[in-house]
C-alpha cells in the first residue's frame, strides 16, 4: 500500500511535478483565452484557486456522505455553487476583472482540473490534505497561465500593462518591445495576441517541458545502465 504523501508533497506536487496545465494538460481553454494579458491571467488564476480550494474542502467534508451513484451530480452542484459565488463576488468587487474574463468565469464549472481533483483526490482524502491539494493546484495553474500570458503579452503587444483589471493599482505600462514614449519603435509580433499565437505558445511550452523531461529521463537511464554495468562488472569480477 502506498504511503500517504506528506502534507508538503501534497502542496508542492501540483506546483511543479504534477502541474495541472503543463504536465496533466488540463484546463487548456482558459489557458488560451485569458492569457492575452498578464493581469487577466493572474486574476483568473486567483478565481480558479478560490473555486478549487473551496470545492475540494466541501467535497472532502462530504466524502463519506455522498453515495456512489450520485457522485458526479453532487460534485457538479458543489462546484457550480462556488463558481456562482465567485461570479457574484467578482462582479461586485472586481467588475473590471469580471468583464475582462467574460464567459470563462462561468466555464470554471466545467474546468477539467476542478472536477478532476474532486474525483481523484478530495473524495478520498482528509479535509486538510484536500485543502492543500486545492491550494497547490490553484497556485500551480496560476503561475502556469501567468507564464503563458507573460510571453504572449510581451511578444504580442510589446508592453506589460498593469492597473487595467485590478483597478486599485495605478495604471502603468511597462514598455519592453514597444510602447516607448515618443517613439514608434516596435518589435511586437501581433500574431501572439490572436488565438493562433496562443496555440503556438502553449505547444512550444509543452515541447520545451517534454524536451527537459526527456533529457532527465535519458540521463537517469544512462545512470541506471552505468550502475547496472558496474554491478555486473563487479559481480563478474567477484565471480572470477
Amino acid at each position: 500500500m502506498d504511503q500517504k504523501p506528506s502534507k508538503l508533497k501534497v502542496f508542492l506536487d501540483p506546483l511543479c511535478k504534477a502541474n495541472p496545465l503543463f504536465v496533466m494538460i488540463l484546463g487548456t481553454c482558459p489557458a488560451l483565452a485569458v492569457t492575452t494579458s498578464l493581469e487577466s491571467a493572474i486574476g483568473m488564476g486567483l478565481l480558479f484557486t478560490f473555486v478549487v480550494f473551496c470545492s475540494n474542502l466541501i467535497i472532502s467534508l462530504l466524502r463519506k456522505v455522498i453515495p456512489e451513484e450520485v457522485r458526479t451530480p453532487c460534485y457538479i452542484v458543489v462546484i457550480a455553487t462556488f463558481v456562482t459565488v465567485v461570479k457574484l463576488l467578482s462582479s461586485t468587487f472586481l467588475p473590471e476583472l469580471y468583464s475582462s474574463l467574460g464567459v470563462f468565469v462561468s466555464l470554471l464549472v466545467v474546468n477539467c482540473i476542478v472536477l478532476g481533483r474532486a474525483e481523484a483526490f478530495a473524495s478520498q482524502n482528509t479535509v486538510v490534505d484536500s485543502m492543500l491539494d486545492g491550494l497547490g493546484n490553484g497556485l500551480g495553474y496560476t503561475w502556469a497561465i501567468a507564464a503563458i500570458a507573460l510571453v504572449r503579452e510581451v511578444l504580442g503587444t510589446g508592453t506589460l500593462t498593469f492597473g487595467k483589471v485590478f483597478t486599485f493599482i495605478p495604471k502603468f505600462t511597462l514598455p519592453i518591445l514597444s510602447g516607448y514614449s515618443g517613439s514608434d519603435f516596435s518589435m511586437a509580433i501581433p500574431l501572439f495576441k490572436s488565438s493562433a499565437g496562443g496555440f503556438l505558445v502553449l505547444g512550444i511550452a509543452l515541447a520545451i517541458i517534454a524536451a527537459v523531461n526527456n533529457e532527465k529521463e535519458r540521463k537517469a537511464k544512462e545512470k541506471a545502465r552505468a550502475e547496472k554495468a558496474a554491478a555486473a562488472a563487479a559481480a563478474k569480477g567477484g565471480n572470477n
Partner: peptide
C-alpha cells in the same frame, strides 16, 4: 436526500 440537501444548501448560500 443527499443531492437534495446539497442543492438546498447551495441555493441558500447563493
Amino acid at each position: 436526500l443527499v443531492l437534495g440537501c446539497i442543492c438546498v444548501g447551495s441555493a441558500a448560500l447563493i
